[in-house]
Design a protein around this nucleic acid. Structure first.
Lengths: 203, 203
DNA sequence: CTACAATCGGAGTCTCCACTTCGGTTACAG
DNA sequence: CTGTAACCGAAGTGGAGACTCCGATTGTAG
């Protein structure tokens, strides 16, 4: 039994502590699931109590697993970033190079309205250190998408990744706050895609 | 001209009450100025106390003039909406039809980072009744801008106002949360402008 | 089975903020 | 100048939410 616990670094992955008691592990999972749902629906301002209730545990249990509301939020953002980066990388390696970027764009904007966490994650100016790695991975995956689309001739060669990310973030935020009809979403995306295409004037 | 309709609605303009005592009028003005500055800098979550302090009055004075924090916020938004609508209308009547829309876009996005109130106003899904009129005026002015640009041949004829507003809101929000370098802002706007231009493929 | 340490959970604390109250102050009519 | 009604402002109230404490509960080693 390791009496002394020396933990120089907090591990934010799914199973951080060793020999975690069974109920503790179960509750931890429940809390993470509940937190992801609540944060996605109501944003970071959702109360910890609501998360505890949705998870079916007491509020004290939440704060034992995550000493701070912020730490819980970071754990969720970490998970979200990892998933998003994986999806994007899959699209970059397996998808049709000519259209993969547009698919990624459309899919992300579509889901933005339902997943506030994703938008908050993307919009953050100063990325917390704990989620920096997956966010970097996401950026690299987008870079691949842009590069392939440019090689395939569906995106202008002078377009760079920062402005693509800027457009993505902007569209996600706008669609989140002002729920778009599918028709409006399609037309708005069409304008951006047209602007990215080689047919457009460079101005 | 709209027919005269009598609406029992509180007047939110600068001088609502008649025969307001001199010091009261002065304080009211100070509060409005302070609130606009603070809300623009910190958003709607800024505390009333900070506004009172910046205005140089007690917090009680703020609540006498504006019974609710929300009513104060609405008064500011009303003023902002009126100003923005006037600027836009001026651009619609006096500016070069071919470029006025782009000028409006660029100017608004440029100022977004410093004026959170404007972004909050534009992004609101449900416009409060008290500011609906100037917001409608703004929308009409944008409609004129789009129409003139289309007549001048600088914007595709199939583009409609809703998607233009959606793009504007998205760009403003993104530039607000993630401060853009002027260079990035220019490149991002260039993509959108290219997408609006007739040279772009319709998809 | 039993002991015990890890875990649970919710009442309690602390802080922040919107909003109220009321005694002191001041503009202004007469 | 003077009375007074309007106005001022800071201490006070209430509620919400993040975080803590500690007796009760429970998984698990032996």
């Amino acid at each position: 039994m390791p009496n002394d616990q020396r933990v120089p670094e907090p591990d934010l992955s799914a199973a951080p502590a060793r020999t975690l008691r069974a109920d503790a592990q179960r509750n931890r999972t429940r809390i993470l699931e509940a937190a992801e749902a609540v944060f996605a629906a109501k944003g970071p301002s959702a109360s910890t109590e609501e998360i505890a209730q949705k998870a079916g545990v007491g509020i004290g249990t939440v704060f034992r697993h995550f000493p701070t509301k912020e730490s819980l939020l970071k754990a969720i953002m970490h998970a979200v970033a990892v998933r998003l980066a994986e999806e994007t990388r899959a699209l970059a390696t397996e998808g049709d190079p000519a259209t993969a970027l547009f698919t990624f764009f459309t899919r992300t904007v579509e889901q933005a309205a339902e997943k506030k966490t994703v938008v908050d994650l993307l919009a953050q100016a100063d990325i917390p250190v704990t989620v920096a790695k997956p966010v970097l991975a996401l950026r690299e995956a987008v870079e691949v998408l842009v590069g392939k689309a440019q090689q395939a001739g569906t995106v202008r060669p002078d377009v760079r990744v920062p402005e693509v990310m800027a457009l993505l973030i902007g569209l996600c935020q706008a669609s989140l706050n002002t729920p778009w009809e599918p028709d409006l979403r399609a037309r708005t995306l069409a304008i951006v895609f047209a602007g990215l295409s080689p047919a457009a004037a460079t101005g």
